[in-house]
Design a protein around this nucleic acid. Structure first.
Length: 307
DNA sequence: TACCAGGAGAGCG
DNA sequence: CGCTCTCATGGT
């Protein structure tokens, strides 16, 4: 039976193992957490549903996640004594209510929140997030997933997985990708994004860009550092600021969000990007990034219903 | 077939 | 600054 520690990020599962705190399983108590929606709303690209859980990789470890009621159960291959890496990734400690109360009381956003109850922002590895979104430009999410799957297999380090589970690879490090050729990257179906990814990987690998240091900077400083990287513009920089560094005001505006903003707040009129950005920062408040993700997930779900 | 996809960069006036 | 064009590839 599971033993729960109240408010702790990890509720360990009692086992017959040598030490009670070391286990291959861990339960997280969560409220207002939609795991499936969170893993599938276009912020992460390497989660796969397989029979009884979501399988993926976090910081070089194979993980299976599965939600039952108010609990997210996690399994790893090797026993873990410290699960803070997973709690941090899932942002399980974040009280969603504290976020939602900062949203403007307004019809469209309220509707999105109701339809996507429990949607969360993850806290991802900066390099993986950066590289993934460099590959995302004018690609559909399914395709981004395919490209990244190829990258992992061809350049990433193989990981230990449970018996019977499909093979899995770590996301390639900047060093691993920096050692690749442009032709090898293009063979992963990334097209014109190959030289961007390669150049970015080299800058990170040689320390010309220090991703760890960005976490210590202000949003604006961190953004201008990201914008120096090849293949990184406003949109991709904001994705990394939001999904990897957790800057809550970062508000990525892609084609979907742009369409939604024009439709919801500008009567469907053509509105320049600069105007949309200004509106977003003024309107959505201190957790604009969360609002953005609710709008994004909401309009994508609505779009699919029509088909 | 035609159009579009979680865009960015270069060239232009 | 704002506009347009191109880049590569696959889904719908």
């Amino acid at each position: 039976m599971a033993v729960y520690f109240e408010t702790s990020s990890c509720l360990s599962v009692a086992t017959s193992a040598d030490s009670p705190s070391v286990s291959r399983e861990c339960n997280f108590a969560v409220t207002d957490y939609d795991l499936a929606g969170t893993l599938n709303c276009g912020q992460a690209f390497n989660w796969h549903w397989r029979s009884d859980g979501w399988e993926g990789v976090i910081h070089g470890r194979w993980v299976r996640l599965c939600q039952q009621n108010g609990t997210i159960r996690a399994e790893t291959v090797a026993p873990e004594s410290d699960w803070s890496w997973l709690a941090d990734y899932l942002q399980a400690h974040v009280g969603l209510g504290d976020i939602l109360v900062t949203f403007p009381a307004e019809t469209r956003l309220t509707m999105a929140v109701e339809k996507c109850r429990g949607l969360r922002l993850l806290r991802q590895d900066p390099w993986e997030c950066l590289a993934s979104f460099i590959l995302s430009s004018t690609k559909q999410i399914v395709q981004i997933r395919q490209i990244i799957a190829l990258l992992r297999v061809r350049f990433g380090s193989p990981l230990a997985v449970p018996n019977g589970a499909p093979r899995q690879f770590a996301f390639p490090t900047a060093e691993q990708l920096a050692a690749a050729t442009e032709a090898e990257l293009r063979a992963c179906k990334m097209g014109f994004r190959a030289p961007y990814l390669l150049a970015a990987a080299r800058q990170v690998a040689i320390g010309e860009c220090n991703l760890d240091r960005l976490a210590t900077l202000s949003v604006d400083k961190a953004r201008s550092e990201l914008l120096k990287l090849p293949g990184v513009g406003e949109k991709i920089a904001d994705c990394v600021l939001l999904f990897a560094y957790g800057f809550p005001t970062a508000f990525p505006i892609d084609v979907w969000i742009a369409k939604a903003l024009r439709q919801f707040y500008f009567r469907g009129r053509k509105t320049p990007m600069k105007r949309l950005r200004q509106f977003a920062t003024e309107h959505f408040g201190p957790n604009a990034g969360y609002a953005q993700q609710y709008l994004f997930h909401y309009i994508r779900m609505e779009g699919r219903k029509k088909l």
